[in-house]
Write a protein that binds this DNA or RNA. Structure first.
Lengths: 249, 249
DNA sequence: GCAACCTCTGAGCCCGCTCTCAGTGACCGA
DNA sequence: TCGGTCACTGAGAGCGGGCTCAGAGGTTGC
């Protein structure tokens, strides 16, 4: 009970329709990456388990009966597709999110995703993985979310995650991909100071070697588009980070 | 004074959901620093244990099964991340607070805050370490706090630690980082006289060489912002220190 | 193959924050 | 009443965090 409770604060709860935690199996042969991924997912409210190769993945799946799988296409023993076939035998309706190199066999991926599954290309940002996974579950009708639909709302700022559309006070705000991800992360954590390191870890790819300076830059972009000529919602907390807040009444 | 007594007067209680004391493992190869840290944490209501290197850290963790770990990234035998992997094997959901040098290779910090873990850079203030650790536990839903949420309240003075927001009588009070930390320390110890030395030890970094005079200065800043034109809550006890009290009715 | 866009780096500027110094006021014991 | 200590506050120097601009390099789409 104590340790399994996902988190205290005001995040939307992520549970199965039967009330239990959603279970995900992370399959990747890079232990560092698997660790970071599972950390992010655990923090996002999932019950996580990891496997480093195809054989142990199938074994783990039999035991865990996961609702979703994050699956690296390149595995040391078999390829991800063979693993998937075995997994589907265990649990036909499982959602799968593939991890793949940028220019790897697009055609096979395309065939797979036609079935409702999804993929992200390496290097990815954790925010992207988590969002995609949530999207999969939502579309499969497996998750019961406290707020229905793919809508994020903070004050008069509204983000439609599926349509990739953001409006403030009804007016459309056009964002670049990175700006969008950054805003999504902020909107998922309203009224909470997020450090530049946190933002960097979640919004930028895990292999990004750059400095925290980029975060300042993109915050400045966002301000121009989101706060332009309006009461600001994005606030700087000197020495700590940034907060997104609805305008005080 | 007595470091073994978890806490004195009106502090919010800090216990596990099963009612036991929260357990923390402090891992640092500097015995002085480890001692100071464990003293501060014990005083804050934790059951503390220390280790000086990676091997004994893992051994201690197996025995103690800590709820949280304060972990120096630079260890004599291995680096903190390898230790973390072993520790996670013992207890996957443990909260970790990393200690790191200011500009020591930001790259190896990459990814750690993504899982909900956090870090502070040396030199840090004890108040910061304790606050971050509490934040970690709170977010992980592990701590049962007497008052729910990240709110600190003394009279009509309210501090939202997550949003870094302070209000008095509903009015927003804007504070600099140091002012914020000082006020947090006062608010954690209401109705209790705190000496300048105590304040210096808790709120300023452990390597701060300055005089107790800064405390007076910052108390004066706080008064201007918190007590401005209102009945004072910050009182001087001549020869002893300062107290924060709700205004007497 | 070109244009438009996006992402990130580097440099420079500004301003808030921190702390030192110094001067004044408050309190206390003799 | 007086001297001494303790506390408060104003002024200002120095520093560093944060913002913005300009531009290079890469990618996408036509």
């Amino acid at each position: 009970m104590n340790t399994s409770r996902p988190r205290g604060s005001g995040r939307p709860t992520l549970t199965r329709t039967d009330g239990a935690l959603l279970r995900v199996l992370v399959v990747d042969d890079d232990p560092d990456l698997a660790e970071v991924l599972s950390g992010a997912l655990r923090y996002d409210g999932w019950q996580v388990r990891t496997a480093g190769d195809g054989v142990s993945a199938v074994a783990a799946a039999r035991e865990l009966l996961p609702d979703a799988i994050v699956l690296d296409v390149m595995l040391p023993d078999t390829d991800g597709f063979a693993v998937l076939r075995s997994l589907r035998a265990v649990r036909p309706d499982v959602c799968v999110l593939f991890l793949t190199a940028r220019d790897a066999v697009e055609d096979r991926i395309a065939g797979i995703t036609a079935g409702g599954d999804d993929y992200v290309t390496k290097p990815f940002s954790l925010e992207e993985v988590v969002a995609r996974l949530r999207g999969l579950l939502r579309r499969a009708g497996m998750a019961r979310q406290s707020e229905e639909g793919p809508r994020l709302t903070v004050g008069d700022l509204i983000m439609d995650e599926e349509a990739h559309e953001v409006t403030r006070g009804g007016e459309l705000v056009e964002l670049s991909p990175t700006e969008f991800e950054l805003l999504r992360f902020l909107m998922r954590n309203p009224r909470r100071v997020l450090s530049k390191a946190q933002i960097l870890d979640r919004v930028w790819s895990y292999d990004f070697g750059g400095q925290a300076h980029v975060v300042e830059l993109y915050i400045s972009y966002l301000r121009k588009k989101v706060d332009a000529g309006r009461s600001p919602m994005i606030h700087t907390v000197r020495g700590a980070g940034y907060v997104l807040k609805p305008v005080a009444r």
